[in-house]
Design a protein around this nucleic acid. Structure first.
Length: 464
RNA sequence: GGUCCUAUCGUCUAGCGGCCCAGGACGCUGCCCUCUCACGGCAGAAACGGGGGUUCGAGUCCCCCUAGGAUCACCA
């Protein structure tokens, strides 16, 4: 039984990189019919917050990454870490260290300056006395020689010389475990079979393997996924734009689009670009994860978002638009007309927010007229065409789109102008702008009454 | 600096020795469609970092160089 996990530390929101790691773990577990476990690594009391936990859970839910077990909190598992630390101590595989943080820091800097390795010098390793008044840490007795081999599903065989690794702290002076110790205990307790995580952890892996060995635990499978970089090829951060998953929701991105984008960042399945969640689960595998870091490309994400905007069911899209309309003060809007609006704009917008913004032509009757547009399409302030169209609409109404098209064409012919001219004149009358959705859609959505009002308003503004 | 990882169009990538004078996608350019803008369709420009090997044959295997990234905490 495959068991994977996502183990974020609650020191901020769910970011793009974490989301992809979570996604890969989720997909792998689902693909194998296994379990996906969520664990919160909150051993750093200083930086961990409840808000972050909620933010991460929100992000996961929005992306549809449901977990089977958890969330487990490391802060509630102190007895487990203590138990195994004591065990290591009793077996002579760990020891108390009384060195103070300041002197450690100092020695590190000196070593660096003198060109030596900045690793712990193990001076407490064979210490027999127990200094009073100092709260010690517990260090792991790492092997002094030999090699530790990581067999990684993505990176292949990676060999580390043990002399490069020092005696890491496993329990801090405040009694809390450190990361490298806690993950091992947790992954063992939670019976994790496949550890899929960012490759910034590759260097931690030999240390963790040494702990597995010291405790006699079987080694799980490791898969270190390459990082996601910003456009300047440095680690993705705020200055590259939004990195919070929920920020994308707020900007009008659709969860499926983001998930689809993320799955293709570092993973591929031939030439396929579009994947439904079901397809991802069916086709995901670790072999097809690339080995090199990937640059986050906002344009491609935008394209995917536009794709889902164009192809999703209107019934699914309609409720998603609510927030974006409300943001603009549009609250009472029935689902039927909302769907009409979406239909008229979905091919012109790339985000839900953009769609809502351009939908304002349907809601605001008091707008400015684009002066350049007016000058361009109304030579000599000639209002005869508009008057003619107005009269026609007032007398005949508009049965359907075909009638409207005929009207535009006939009018153009009657006044010996191009069809574009007639259309653009009507567009300016109806929206004030030279760019808008299809004219018939506007009339259909706002209704004949408001249509005629907009004509009258225009004529009043421009008749002198 | 030590250690580790990585290296195909600007970007995401296909390629797992001959099917590749390198394919797809985003973006970009042009044309078509068209009531504007979009959408859509078609076409185009655009890459195997460099140098050595191995081999009849290398983008694909090996080595070196170079370049990027990661990591060296009582953070995770």
């Amino acid at each position: 039984m495959v068991r994977t996990r996502f183990a974020p530390s609650p020191t901020g929101y769910l970011h793009i990189g974490g989301a992809r790691t979570a996604l890969f773990n989720f997909l792998y577990a689902r693909n194998k019919g296994g379990k996906f476990i969520l664990r919160i690594e909150d051993t750093d009391a200083e930086r961990s917050t409840k808000e972050s936990v909620d933010a991460i859970l929100d992000g996961m839910s929005w992306l549809g990454l449901s977990w089977d077990e958890g969330p487990f909190f490391q802060s509630q598992r102190m007895d487990r870490y203590k138990y195994y630390a004591d065990k290591l101590l009793a077996e002579g595989k760990a020891y108390y260290c009384y060195c103070q943080p300041e002197e450690l820091q100092e020695r590190r800097e000196r070593a660096l300056k003198e060109g030596r390795k900045p690793i712990y010098d193990r001076r407490c390793r064979e210490r027999k006395d127990t200094p009073q008044g100092i709260k010690p840490v517990i260090r792991f007795k790492a092997p002094l020689e030999g090699q530790t081999v990581v067999n990684d599903l993505i990176k292949g065989t990676v060999v580390f010389n043990n002399e490069e690794l020092d005696d890491l702290i496993i329990i801090r002076s405040d009694g809390f475990p450190t990361y490298n110790f806690a993950v091992v205990i947790d992954d063992v307790d939670m019976e994790i079979t496949h550890i899929i995580r960012g490759d910034d952890h590759l260097n931690n892996t030999p240390r963790q393997i040494q702990i597995y060995n010291a405790l006699g635990f079987p080694i799980p499978q490791f898969a270190h996924v390459p990082m996601i970089l910003g456009s300047d090829k440095t680690r993705l951060s705020k200055r590259h734009g939004a990195t919070s998953v929920m920020a994308y929701k707020d900007m009008g991105y659709i969860n499926r689009a983001l998930v689809n984008y993320l799955v293709r960042l570092g993973w591929s399945y031939g030439d396929q670009e579009i994947f439904s969640l079901e397809e991802m689960i069916e086709k995901f595998n670790i072999e097809n994860i690339g080995k090199s870091a990937a640059v986050f490309n906002p344009d491609k994400l935008l394209w995917l978002n536009a794709h889902y905007l164009k192809t999703m069911e209107l019934d699914e899209l309609e409720p998603l638009m609510r927030d974006f309309f409300e943001k603009r003060g549009v609250n009472k809007i029935d689902p039927v007309s909302c769907k009409k609006i979406i239909k008229s704009l979905r091919e012109r917008a790339k985000t839900l927010d953009e769609l809502a913004e351009s939908a304002m032509v349907y809601f605001i009757d008091e707008f400015e007229y684009d002066e350049n547009g007016v000058n361009k399409f109304f030579p000599n302030k000639d209002l005869r065409i508009i008057n003619y169209v107005y009269d026609f609409l007032k007398c005949n109404g508009l049965a359907d789109e075909k009638v409207f098209e005929t009207l535009v064409r006939d009018t153009a012919e009657k006044f010996s102008v191009k069809v574009v001219t007639v259309a653009q004149q009507i567009r300016i009358v109806l929206t004030g702008k030279t760019v808008s959705p299809s004219l018939y859609d506007i009339i259909d959505i706002i209704g004949m009454e408001r249509t005629l009002k907009r004509f009258e308003r225009f004529l009043t503004f421009h008749s002198h």
